[in-house]
């Protein structure tokens, strides 16, 4: 399946993917409104980790083939859909954070309402290409099918 991959060689650490992600999932049509007009700033499902020596790496859900988070979910809120996307049903999430403990990549976080917040490849909002990919200024984040090759 197509997944989001990050090439740290080209990641500038501009953090714009976070902004774009948060905006795409904010439900607002205007970015200024999304950030400046609501009580709580929208949160991103992707995080850029800034290391030493100018290493930057954006981290988001890998949509693993055997996702530990889904295995560990105590309410069945996390599921893998027919396209392989790991999805969260936040009406069922109780905010126990077991998934966050289970995730080996540290990709998961919680939202303002204490339920799980995770990348769903923008299938629920803009559709098509994930927003972080489309707006990355340096093609550091790509959306590719690398199955069959090295994961």
């Amino acid at each position: 399946m197509k997944r989001v991959y990050v090439n740290e060689e080209w990641c500038l650490g501009c953090h714009l993917c976070e902004i774009q992600c948060a905006f795409a999932n904010s439900g607002e049509a205007d970015m200024v409104k999304a950030f400046n007009n609501s009580e709580q700033k929208p949160l991103a499902r992707i995080t850029v980790e800034d290391g030493e020596n100018d290493i930057h790496f954006a981290v988001s859900c890998r949509h693993c083939e055997t996702p530990y988070c889904v295995k560990g979910c105590i309410t069945g809120a996390l599921t893998v859909n027919e396209n392989g996307i790991v999805q969260i049903d936040d009406t069922r999430c109780v905010g126990c954070r077991t998934c966050i403990l289970m995730c080996p990549y540290g990709c998961l976080t919680v939202g303002h309402n204490k339920t799980l917040l995770k990348c769903e490849l923008c299938v629920e909002n803009l559709g098509g290409e994930p927003s972080c990919v489309r707006r990355c200024p340096n093609n550091a984040i790509v959306f590719e099918d690398r199955d069959g090759g090295l994961l």
Partner: peptide, 13 residues
Amino acid sequence: EKRCIKCRACERQ
């Protein structure tokens, strides 16, 4: 100011 969302991209770049 009204448009700035303080994302700090300008600062980083």
